[in-house]
Amino acid sequence: EPCHNPNPPRPAPPHAAAALPWDITQAQAQSPATTLRVGMTAAAVPLSNGVPDQGAEGHRFMGITLYDPLARWDLTKFDTPVDIRPGLATAWRVDPNNDKRWIITIPQGVKFHDGKTLTAEDVVFSYDRALKNDAPHYDPRAAAQARIRMPTITGWSAEGPNTLIIETRIDATFEPAAQTRLLGQLHSKVVDDALFLFVAHDLNPRAMSRRVQGFVQAQSWFQDLNPIRLQ
């Protein structure tokens, strides 16, 4: 159905069945100032298993907004570094005897839409569905979305209804200085001492091995490839 704009910025083409404002400020003016409506195709429909489709965009716009994670980014501030705040999990800590073992607290009283109480076993079910290939409920579609976001997780289990155990293959931390140190180690391993090299030739900045010599940043999408050499 046409959107009626009393002051359209330009005439609609004769074949158009509907004329939408080209300026987002005009689109917003037709609704309360506190409401922003975004139309897009990324959705979990027609899938019935709760896995957002459409790749990263489906994850960002549907998965993060519609489903509750164990922890979430604190986006209530814009002038400080983003921190982690509780989601379904109310607390998490590293096992004092094992730096690669996390103990996560699942709160009591959280309900599913059908009234069932959430437990740590339910979280294990979700991890099995995405990461355990021989699980009866393993879902390749879920795996395609989850594996790339949890590459360091090696194990998960429940210790009672309110304690979830996550094991990782590397030391994991939320401490900024430790994160910087770990990222430096990762960069050294996968970039500086990589077994192979892939150089994307486009207009965006990138992390690049110091062994690469002669690379010239592209100034145009139509610029041809430049030869490089490894030191």
Score class of each variant (00 low, 15 high):
36 L>K: 08
193 D>V: 10
27 A>M: 11
8 P>E: 00
159 E>W: 06
37 R>Y: 02
36 L>E: 08
67 Y>L: 03
32 P>W: 00
33 A>G: 10
141 R>K: 11
129 R>W: 03
85 R>C: 04
111 K>L: 05
214 G>R: 14
76 T>P: 04
88 L>Q: 01
137 H>L: 10
18 A>Y: 13
95 D>I: 08
211 R>N: 14
123 V>F: 03
54 Q>V: 09
166 I>Q: 07
41 T>Q: 04
71 A>Y: 02
12 A>S: 08
71 A>M: 10
113 H>F: 03
192 D>V: 15
173 T>W: 07
23 D>Y: 07
9 P>M: 04
129 R>I: 01
222 F>M: 10
148 I>S: 12
55 G>N: 04
118 L>V: 06
44 A>E: 04
214 G>H: 13
151 P>C: 08
80 T>V: 14
75 L>T: 06
125 F>W: 05
19 A>N: 10
225 L>W: 06
87 G>V: 00
164 L>R: 03
34 T>A: 13
187 H>F: 14
165 I>L: 15
57 E>D: 03
202 D>H: 07
59 H>C: 02
165 I>M: 12
68 D>A: 06
4 H>R: 13
229 R>T: 15
96 P>Y: 09
189 K>G: 07
65 T>S: 01
56 A>T: 03
78 F>M: 11
98 N>C: 08
179 Q>V: 15
24 I>Q: 09
60 R>V: 01
189 K>H: 13
107 P>K: 12
163 T>V: 15
213 Q>S: 13
27 A>T: 12
171 D>P: 00
96 P>K: 12
39 G>L: 11
135 A>F: 09
113 H>Q: 07
128 D>T: 12
176 P>Y: 01
140 P>C: 13
4 H>I: 14
73 W>G: 03
125 F>E: 08
64 I>G: 01
217 Q>A: 12
36 L>Q: 11
16 A>F: 08
226 N>E: 12
82 V>C: 07
187 H>R: 13
65 T>C: 01
208 M>W: 05
152 T>H: 12
43 A>M: 03
123 V>M: 05
34 T>H: 15
155 G>Y: 13
213 Q>A: 12
138 Y>G: 04
160 G>C: 10
61 F>Q: 00
78 F>R: 13
47 L>R: 14
147 R>L: 09
165 I>P: 11
180 T>A: 13
203 L>G: 12
119 T>M: 02
144 A>V: 04
138 Y>Q: 05
172 A>V: 15
197 L>T: 15
217 Q>F: 07
37 R>I: 06
129 R>V: 02
123 V>E: 00
121 E>M: 10
48 S>W: 12
119 T>R: 01
58 G>F: 00
116 K>P: 00
